[in-house]
Design a binder for these strands. Sequence first.
DNA 1: TTTAGAATTAGAATGATTCTAACTGCATTG
DNA 2: CAATGCAGTTAGAATCATTCTAATTCTAAA
Lengths: 151, 151
Amino acid sequence: MSPSTTRSPAKASGLDCRLAVLGADVRLTPHRREVFDVLAASTDHPTAYDILDRVKSRSPGMSLATVYNCLEHLTSHGLIKLVHLERGQSRYCANLHEHVHFHCETCGKVIDAHPNADFDPAKFWNLPAGTRVTRTDLAIHGTCQNCAAKS
Amino acid sequence: MSPSTTRSPAKASGLDCRLAVLGADVRLTPHRREVFDVLAASTDHPTAYDILDRVKSRSPGMSLATVYNCLEHLTSHGLIKLVHLERGQSRYCANLHEHVHFHCETCGKVIDAHPNADFDPAKFWNLPAGTRVTRTDLAIHGTCQNCAAKS
DNA sequence: TTTAGAATTAGAATGATTCTAACTGCATTG
DNA sequence: CAATGCAGTTAGAATCATTCTAATTCTAAA
């Protein structure tokens, strides 16, 4: 956990790789890389279990604990986002563009929705003077296109 | 759970009371009433455990299971709202006015923030045609006034 | 008063996540 | 090159919030 290690973090070996995201140079081990790749290739906001499933073809030995470790590392370094839509399993996404999550209460699907205008939610709400905002999470719940058509 | 009971719901006894909220006439047992009252008197978004604590002075025998049952009943009847801000315990609030939640990442406090203009968040986001929105949840994370002043 | 259904209870069960302790392997130091 | 140390990884235990189950109590209708 401590970033103040004497070990040089700059030297990359064959088992080590890096990823430059948003200007940050993040060191990725093979497992972290695979977890990230799975997430980057997914648009359905997989859970930790989903990710373990998808990673298993390439890394059959990976454990759930490692998936959680990797997700924690990637989240804390800003490469992915953690989404809480309801009680139960957390979901993850690699979409770093500003967006919100639409959650279909019928089929459980989660889709990203992007803003159609430059929009800062924090401006619309009366927060006490001196409040510092680091991030906002907007979740929209309802019925998706498909489920709405069926009913 | 079924609302289609033959039992007349209109007859109230000394141990039964009702509450008219938003036009709905909701039947409240003493325990449900106490849970609701505790929540209505709280502005700090208590968890189920917090509520059990606060209810205990009036109902020493109440169990956590009953608190959860009451919260479920009140939530499904629209008398209170369930808030998920992060992994861990859910929080509840009895503020039914349109508002969002500000969560201080330093002290953990949650405060309600009200809109300063008539505002529908769903309008700002590109949702597929045919999507039906039932509710939106906006959580703002950051540092509150007090914690910001200390740092 | 009998009976049925709803509410309540304690404790067990579940499910997601985190923790612990042991192990592996690379990389720096001697 | 060998020794040492630390990050990464692992399986499984532990924890925590919540839900379920079965038994009990209460209320109201027949």
